[in-house]
């Protein structure tokens, strides 16, 4: 019986860290720790000495983890980025999902594969949620801007809501711009004239 694999997840966002942990728990029985505070990351990782490190591809802290692959002091366990030489599709999938994995030398491919597969699946979900959240936020902001511009037009011109929106839309079409851009320009101009 082999010992449980220990996995360190470097992730500052608590919610996302939890999601990744859940995904890994579903995949197998692992000892999982999260590093949320990246100050002194190299030292923290050295102290934890995990078998596998998972880190967001888009995190600047990735270079710190990458540096560990060559800065092995005597007695340190050599760590390398997980590169599947027999299947570059795994690397492509990992990059697409936005995750990179570092593993301790000597771990068999069979033991790492389920971890990586679970991580890839979970990082995909995390990335999708992040995009959704950003899109929702942007949509809400746009809506607020358009509402405010509508309000200004209604007040200034004594027109109704529908008419105000129609006016914004007509202007946008005539200028080849988005409704929200016209609304933003109107608000900026109105603020200047105050």
């Amino acid at each position: 019986m082999t010992e449980k694999l220990s996995i360190a997840v470097v992730e500052q966002d608590h919610e996302r860290a939890l999601m990744i942990i859940d995904g890994l728990r579903d995949a197998g029985d692992y000892e999982i720790s999260v590093i949320g505070d990246v100050t002194g990351l190299a030292r923290r990782l050295a102290a934890l000495a995990p078998d596998v490190v998972l880190i967001d591809l888009e995190s600047p802290d990735r270079d710190v983890v990458d540096a560990l692959t060559l800065a092995s002091a005597p007695g340190d366990r050599p760590v390398a980025m997980f590169v599947d030489r027999s299947d570059s599709g795994v690397m492509r999938a990992a990059i697409e999902a936005g995750v990179s994995a570092y593993v301790v030398a000597g771990l068999s491919r069979e033991r790492i594969k389920p971890v990586l597969e679970a991580a890839i699946a979970r990082f995909h979900v995390v990335a999708r949620l992040r995009t959704e959240l950003a899109a929702t936020k942007a949509a809400l902001e746009e809506r607020k801007t358009v509402d405010r511009a509508k309000g200004m037009l209604m007040k200034a011109k004594g027109i109704g809501e529908e008419e105000a929106y129609a006016l914004l839309r007509k202007t946008a079409m005539a200028q080849g711009r988005k409704v929200v851009e016209v609304a933003r320009a109107l608000i900026t101009a109105a603020d200047l004239l105050k």
Binding site: L57, E58, P60, R62, D66, S88, M91, R92, I95, S100
Partner: peptide
């Protein structure tokens, strides 16, 4: 735009 050299290197090789 990328924030890490390791990630830029990896995307050049596999991404």
């Amino acid at each position: 735009r990328e924030v890490s050299w390791a990630t830029l290197r990896d995307k050049l090789i596999w991404g």
